[in-house]
């Protein structure tokens, strides 16, 4: 068991669009602590600010005003210079995105992408090949897949490959943005299981963003419910799911289909 250390800490995060009086609050998150080896889920409907929050954690909020603190280790993503951020992205914080297939460059073999990403973080040659092979095996993909182009693989494979990128770089924090919404139900379960296993095995701090409480309930330790840019409810998964405090959470829970219904 990895000792619990805080991989990602968010304090007083506010993301606004526009400046001065016209500024519109897109997302605010008073406090969030994601320890290594745990999974925090941010739940909400589209436009709730959950994806914006996620992108803020990568420092990828182009044209938006961000205030507060987002600590990854001892780097503050909000104030860090761009150069430090480009090093941090990928090697410390990795993204698994919503539409796995279109997120992969259509003109590039998976192996080329993997090689370039590793090289970007100073991993080259035999070490890089070893890392790639290990990562692929870890997500249960055939290394032969590296020779293929994105359109030649399935959505599930694409998402596994995206996860493999994070694994190969040994990222501490993995941000998963609706990782299963574009996939078939059977594949969804497998991808979730994979994320859950990697979290446990590699001590990854996993932030899972979803509109679907059912998805989240399977693997989250802690759940944050967002609506219109604000946190409606936040607490341990068991509490939020078992005894929701906010009406909105109850609505979301009621929307989850249960077996036999």
């Amino acid at each position: 068991m990895t000792p619990p250390r805080s991989s990602l800490t968010v304090t007083d995060l506010k993301v606004r669009a526009g400046e001065g009086e016209d500024a519109r609050l897109l997302a605010s998150l008073p406090h969030l602590d994601v320890a290594a080896g745990t999974c925090v889920a941010i739940v909400g409907e589209s436009g709730s600010g959950k994806s914006t929050t996620l992108h803020a954690m990568l420092g990828l909020t182009d044209g938006l005003a961000v205030s507060g603190r987002i600590m990854v280790g001892d780097t503050d993503v909000v104030t860090a210079p761009e150069k430090a951020l480009t090093t941090l992205r990928g090697s410390r914080v990795a993204l698994v995105s919503q539409s796995p297939q279109s997120s992969l460059n259509p003109t590039m073999r998976l192996g080329t992408l993997m090689r370039r990403v590793l090289a970007r973080h100073g991993i080259r040659g035999a070490v890089a090949r070893q890392r790639a092979d290990d990562a692929l095996r870890d997500v249960m993909l055939d290394p032969e897949l590296l020779r293929r182009y994105p359109h030649q693989i399935s959505g599930g494979q694409a998402q596994r490959f995206a996860i493999a990128l994070a694994v190969a770089l040994r990222a501490d924090v993995v941000l998963a943005d609706e990782p299963t919404s574009a996939l078939d139900v059977t594949v969804q379960a497998a991808v979730l299981q994979l994320l859950d296993r990697l979290r446990a095995e590699h001590g990854i701090a996993l932030v899972l963003v979803s509109h679907d409480l059912a998805v989240v309930s399977r693997i989250a330790d802690h759940i944050v419910v967002m609506r219109h840019g604000h946190v409606v409810e936040s607490g341990p998964a068991a509490d939020v799911l078992g005894a929701p405090a906010a009406d909105y959470t109850r609505e979301l829970l009621a929307a989850v289909p249960t077996l036999g219904e």
Partner: peptide, 25 residues
Amino acid sequence: APHARLERAYGFSRLQVLTRFSLRP
């Protein structure tokens, strides 16, 4: 395009995304 976000999320600068990843598509 979505792939550009992924490339930036993996540490490539805007200019690198343009020259090394976007030019070919």
